[in-house]
Simulated assay, not measured.
Amino acid sequence: MISALRTLCLLPLLFGTVASTTPEAVKPKITTVYVVRHAEKATEQNPQDPPLTEAGQARARALAEVLRKAPIVAVYSTNTRRTKDTATPLAEAKKRTIEPYEANAPGLAALAARIRQTPQGKAVLVVGHSNTILETVEALGAPRPVPTIGDDEFSYLFEVKLPASGGPATATARNYGGGK
């Protein structure tokens, strides 16, 4: 009997404690989706597909800096020069290829489905336009964090959280890169 009792007392020393929970184990895993509008564009150079202005290039670099520690595994952009140029600094820093998507209703639904396949605990960037980024947030299942985006507003960075449980998505808005 004493031998069996001694063995039971030694088991935790040999195998560790039983089922300890750490904050990481308790914390639910989520996928984070960063949604931004392209940076400032130079419409006088090419009204159909304008490049970024110097301020826009600086904003694109600021975006890469703001998200440099984020576990970005995918970068999505519409097929315009201004959106791709906004995504490029971060894509290059994270060694990711920019993946195109269509910013219409079926395209946003397809994008949302692709994003939901992202591993939990990872993040993606989506670059769109003033008239599509709030729709992108909604396609991901979150309510709009702001009612509208003005044509002169470039600094919004939306953070959409997609819980692993399939529960409701949430979205918050902040600004980056200074200015509007």
Score class of each variant (00 low, 15 high):
residue 131 N to Y: 08
residue 90 L to W: 08
residue 59 R to Q: 11
residue 30 I to H: 01
residue 107 G to W: 04
residue 133 I to W: 00
residue 116 R to L: 03
residue 45 Q to I: 14
residue 179 G to T: 12
residue 100 P to D: 06
residue 66 V to N: 00
residue 47 P to D: 04
residue 95 K to N: 13
residue 176 Y to L: 11
residue 17 T to M: 04
residue 124 V to I: 02
residue 138 E to F: 00
residue 169 A to N: 03
residue 133 I to Q: 00
residue 32 T to V: 13
residue 30 I to N: 02
residue 15 F to K: 00
residue 37 R to I: 11
residue 18 V to W: 13
residue 134 L to W: 05
residue 141 G to S: 10
residue 61 R to S: 15
residue 177 G to E: 08
residue 88 T to G: 05
residue 11 L to M: 11
residue 54 E to Y: 08
residue 179 G to M: 10
residue 98 I to Q: 03
residue 50 P to L: 09
residue 18 V to Q: 10
residue 18 V to D: 02
residue 144 R to Y: 13
residue 42 A to E: 13
residue 3 S to I: 14
residue 116 R to A: 11
residue 28 P to S: 04
residue 92 E to V: 15
residue 2 I to A: 12
residue 30 I to M: 00
residue 83 T to G: 10
residue 16 G to N: 06
residue 90 L to E: 11
residue 116 R to M: 06
residue 97 T to F: 06
residue 17 T to K: 00
residue 62 A to W: 10
residue 157 L to P: 09
residue 82 R to L: 12
residue 155 S to V: 08
residue 128 G to C: 04
residue 71 P to A: 10
residue 167 G to T: 09
residue 35 V to K: 00
residue 31 T to E: 05
residue 43 T to L: 08
residue 127 V to R: 03
residue 139 A to E: 01
residue 83 T to I: 14
residue 57 Q to T: 13
residue 3 S to P: 00
residue 152 D to K: 07
residue 79 N to C: 05
residue 157 L to V: 12
residue 13 L to E: 01
residue 9 C to K: 02
residue 3 S to L: 14
residue 12 P to I: 14
residue 152 D to R: 06
residue 133 I to H: 00
residue 159 E to C: 07
residue 176 Y to H: 07
residue 113 A to I: 02
residue 109 A to Q: 11
residue 69 K to Q: 15
residue 153 E to L: 02
residue 94 K to R: 15
residue 116 R to K: 12
residue 139 A to T: 02
residue 70 A to S: 15
residue 9 C to W: 14
residue 16 G to Y: 07
residue 22 T to P: 00
residue 173 A to G: 08
residue 29 K to R: 14
residue 20 S to M: 09
residue 66 V to L: 13
residue 4 A to P: 00
residue 43 T to N: 07
residue 147 P to Y: 01
residue 17 T to L: 12
residue 111 L to S: 08
residue 44 E to F: 14
residue 16 G to T: 10
residue 108 L to V: 08
residue 92 E to M: 13
residue 28 P to R: 02
residue 88 T to A: 15
residue 18 V to M: 02
residue 94 K to M: 14
residue 43 T to A: 06
residue 166 G to L: 07
residue 84 K to Q: 15
residue 16 G to A: 13
residue 125 L to F: 03
residue 180 K to V: 14
residue 87 A to S: 12
residue 58 A to Y: 04
residue 160 V to C: 06
residue 153 E to N: 09
residue 76 Y to K: 09
residue 175 N to Y: 02
residue 164 A to W: 09
residue 61 R to Q: 15
residue 99 E to R: 13
residue 142 A to H: 01
